[in-house]
């Protein structure tokens, strides 16, 4: 062929940029946006390592630099609280349980709903199942309380069948289950949208070829639909790992009560209660940094793992 000249890697890169300058042009608006709105504020992340006093430097902005540097003191104080270990344990256990039990459900739902031949049925059901997503946890909590309290329909059913009343929301052995069930109820529909979109984008020709080859329903699901969904599933799972330290603050805050602190008090709710009435920006930021670091490590690890196991990763 024509060009066998050895070109240096650096030169190659420059050529690429020149040839595809319009790609970089496309990137500019977003890069500028995140530089202003995401990167600049990150300079304030150091509040996590300082004893931040709003007026230490005359204005809150200057006070960031002017506040005393205390390094890991802030987060150590949080670690040292008597119930922190319990909070950490609860955070990880509840998050893990949620991933294991509620992550697969939207996928299964999407696949099976997709199998229904009637477009009308699909559209109608989709419209219904995503409704709970729009209710705030405060409202959903109220719904579950009226459902599960000692005089509610569920307990009425249990006692009529001869069982003893179960205190779902006040029993440490039940509460986590309720958290998972209520989260599933609220979010399955909404979370399945992305999988529907992914299925909709799959190439029909594969399916047609499979039919001609005499593939059964389940074979099609297993060999075409599932692999087609794999990149999406991997992406969603990796990002979910990044959020592992948020075991569902809004949900737990709305639904918990002191009798279930033992099993459901997570880091977020614990730090919230201790910080009441205090103007403590440092602790909140420190806990945030702690959560983010763990999330970052997990994202990197799961990305590597996903690449090895499935060949797909997010970069």
């Amino acid at each position: 062929m024509a060009n066998t000249k050895k070109v240096s890697a650096g030169r190659k890169k420059l050529l690429y940029v020149r040839k595809n300058y319009d790609l970089y042009l496309l990137l500019v608006p977003t890069l500028v946006f995140i530089a202003i709105f995401n990167l600049v504020p990150l300079w304030g992340l150091q509040i996590a390592f300082r004893d931040y006093k709003l007026m230490a430097g005359g204005t809150p902005w200057r006070s960031i630099w002017a506040s005393k540097w205390v390094g890991l003191n802030i987060i150590s104080k949080v670690f040292g609280k008597s119930e922190f270990t319990r909070a950490l344990r609860n955070t990880l256990v509840i998050s893990a349980m949620k991933i294991v039990f509620t992550f697969p459900l939207p996928i299964v739902f999407a696949i099976f709903l997709n199998e229904v031949r009637s477009n009308g049925f699909q559209k109608g059901l989709q419209l219904i199942v995503y409704l709970p997503h729009f209710l705030s946890w405060v409202v959903v909590s109220g719904l579950f309380v009226s459902l599960l309290n000692s005089m509610g329909p569920v307990n009425k059913l249990i006692t009529s069948l001869g069982g003893a009343k179960i205190r779902f929301l006040m029993d440490n052995s039940w509460f986590r289950t309720i958290l998972i069930v209520s989260e599933a109820w609220k979010e399955i529909g909404w979370s399945s949208i992305i999988y529907f979109a992914a299925i909709a984008g799959l190439d029909m020709e594969c399916y047609e070829a499979a039919i001609v080859d005499g593939a059964s329903r389940f074979q099609k699901m297993w060999y075409i639909t599932l692999p087609g969904l794999l990149p999406t599933v991997v992406l969603m799972l990796i990002i979910r790992m990044g959020n592992i330290m948020d075991a569902g603050f809004s949900q737990i805050f709305a639904m918990y009560n002191p009798t279930v602190y033992e099993s459901a008090d997570i880091i977020g709710t614990y730090v919230y209660r201790l910080g009441l009435g205090k103007l403590d920006f440092s602790t909140g930021t420190a806990v945030g940094v702690f959560n983010s670091i763990i999330g970052l490590v997990l994202v990197l690890l799961s990305n590597v793992f996903a690449k090895r196991a499935t060949g797909k990763s997010i970069w």
Partner: peptide, 26 residues
């Protein structure tokens, strides 16, 4: 070119949030 670096930056800002004070001040 530069894809990996840019993606790292994006992942970083996805996970790290500066909190109330810096965002308000900005």
């Amino acid at each position: 070119v530069g894809r990996k670096f840019i993606l790292y930056v994006f992942v970083f800002i996805m996970l790290f949030h500066a909190g109330m004070v810096p965002n308000y001040l900005l």
